[in-house]
Structures are given as structure tokens and as C-alpha cells.
């Protein structure tokens, strides 16, 4: 039975938040794996900013959820939503969730995941559906680097094959002479 967008979003966010908090479990789906990878890459590139955000998470999860809601509303106020902004928002929420977990609020990550999933599925659901849902996210944040590597290995194979052919032809020419 297919899951609703809200359930799927909540599962993906919980998976990412748990991973962010240091859980060694494997991703619950390929989409979760893509989210983990893309989010980790963004977080690594923008580490100083996300580190500076961690103190914003107070001990109370509801305060963090209210802050997240305010940030989400302002984030899309200027120019609407795009996949990059959505990913940045997820990483920000992950930062707050990790800070809450560090302060001993074990329920914080699940609470934030539920709030963000409700916001994304209910208030931004139309945008998500129009852009292919989480499959669209996977297509957008696929692995062009990997494809490029595959392509360069293809070209490499072709060059080796061509060099081997020329070598054999040269050897045959020398033997016949």
C-alpha cells in the first residue's frame, strides 16, 4: 500500500536526523540514502554557518519547532521554494535536531521531523507533488559525478582498445615485412 506524502516525508526526515545524530543504521530506502548524501555534502560545505545555528536549539523541542516554522515561512517568502532551499531547510532542521539530542532531549529529533513533515506535506504539498515528490528530489540530486566517472571509464576503455588495436596492427606489419 503506497504511503502518503506526509508519512514518507516523516520517515525520510527521521532517518536523516537519526543518521545525523550518529546512528550507524543503513538508510531505510534509496531515497533516504540520497537525502543523507546530498545533505551531508551541503552541511560539509557550509559547516561554519550550520555550527553557528546549533545554539539556537533550546532545550525545549517546541521552541525549536517554532523557530523552524518561522525560518521555513521566511525561506520561501522571497522567490518560492526550490530543491536547494528545501535541502538547506532539512539540514538546518537536522542541526537543531542534533543539538536537541545532544542536550538530552531524545524526543527532539522525532518532534522536529513530525513538524517539518507536516509543513512540507500539508503546506508545500502541491509544490512537492508538482516536482515529482521525493522521486523528483532523487532525480535532481542524483549522482552526475558518478555518471561522469562512468563516462570517463567508458572513454578510457575505448582508448585502451584503440591502442591495443594499433599495437597489434604494428606488430603484424613488422612480422610480415
Amino acid at each position: 500500500m503506497p504511503r502518503s506524502l506526509k508519512e514518507e516525508t516523516a520517515l525520510l526526515l527521521e532517518d536523516y536526523f537519526q543518521h545525523r545524530a550518529g546512528s550507524a543504521a543503513l538508510p531505510c530506502s534509496p531515497t533516504a540514502g540520497t537525502l543523507r548524501r546530498a545533505a551531508a555534502e551541503l552541511e560539509r560545505q557550509e559547516r561554519p554557518f550550520f555550527r553557528s545555528c546549533a545554539p539556537l536549539a533550546r532545550a525545549e523541542p517546541r521552541e525549536a519547532a517554532a523557530l523552524l516554522a518561522r525560518v521555513a515561512a521566511q525561506l520561501e517568502a522571497d522567490g518560492g521554494l526550490n530543491w536547494g532551499r528545501l535541502l538547506a531547510l532539512v539540514v538546518f532542521a537536522g542541526t537543531l535536531a542534533a543539538a536537541l539530542a545532544e542536550r538530552g532531549c531524545s524526543d527532539g529529533p522525532r518532534c522536529l521531523a513530525a513538524h517539518l513533515a507536516a509543513y512540507l506535506a500539508e503546506e508545500r504539498g502541491e509544490w512537492l507533488e508538482a516536482h515529482g515528490g521525493w522521486d523528483g528530489f532523487c532525480r535532481f540530486f542524483g549522482r552526475p559525478g558518478l555518471e561522469a566517472a562512468e563516462q570517463s571509464s567508458t572513454i578510457g576503455n575505448a582508448i585502451v582498445a584503440a591502442a591495443a588495436g594499433i599495437g597489434m596492427a604494428g606488430l603484424a606489419f613488422l612480422l610480415v615485412r
Binding site: R70, Q74, R85, L86, A88, L89
Partner: peptide
């Protein structure tokens, strides 16, 4: 935060 996240996201 929203301003910086918008820049980063874009």
C-alpha cells in the same frame, strides 16, 4: 537564518 539558508539553497 532564513536569509542565509535562502542564499545557500539558491
Amino acid at each position: 537564518c532564513a536569509l542565509e539558508l535562502t542564499r545557500i539553497g539558491d
